[in-house]
């Protein structure tokens, strides 16, 4: 499987903004937030087309997201994920004494995950935040 080393950026998007207002359990929300925006050149490198799933892994976790071709290319080896419960699974909680976790510029690896599923919000909560 081709893996690609990238820098991960979490971002705000207008779709995430409107999706949020539709409710966080809505399909609109998942459609607009459980995504990873990749430069078309990088898509070639991992042999992926749009709308396939990719797995993104950092030192802090791993998550499957739907790949979306970036409209803001070129930005070689940089991928963008909207803020939300999916991005949070792979964020760096270190605040370096500032109170602010490190949410941008995190080293990560992406690889195709065509057979894996993007977790829905309820499934994600069950898996990671299950109450005792």
């Amino acid at each position: 499987m081709p893996k690609l080393k990238v820098l991960l950026q979490t971002v705000r998007t207008i779709d995430q903004g409107t999706g949020k207002e539709h409710g966080k359990l809505s399909e609109e929300y998942q459609e607009s937030v459980a995504i990873c925006q990749v430069d078309p050149e990088d898509m070639k490198l991992i042999g992926m087309r749009e709308d396939g799933n990719v797995r993104i892994t950092t030192n802090f976790g791993s998550v499957v997201l739907r790949l979306v071709k970036s409209q803001a290319a070129p930005h070689s080896k940089i991928v963008f994920i909207p803020y939300g419960p999916w991005a949070s699974l792979i964020m760096n909680p270190e605040t370096h004494g500032t109170g602010m976790p490190s949410l941008k510029g995190i080293p990560a690896e992406i690889e195709p995950a065509l057979k894996e599923k993007v977790l829905s919000v309820p499934d994600l909560l069950k898996e990671y935040y299950k109450r005792e």
Binding site: F60, M91, E132
Partner: peptide, 17 residues
Amino acid sequence: SDPVAHFPKKAAQNLVR
């Protein structure tokens, strides 16, 4: 606010515990 969706996993897990 929605920290479970927006905090890094470790922080959110300790919140809901």
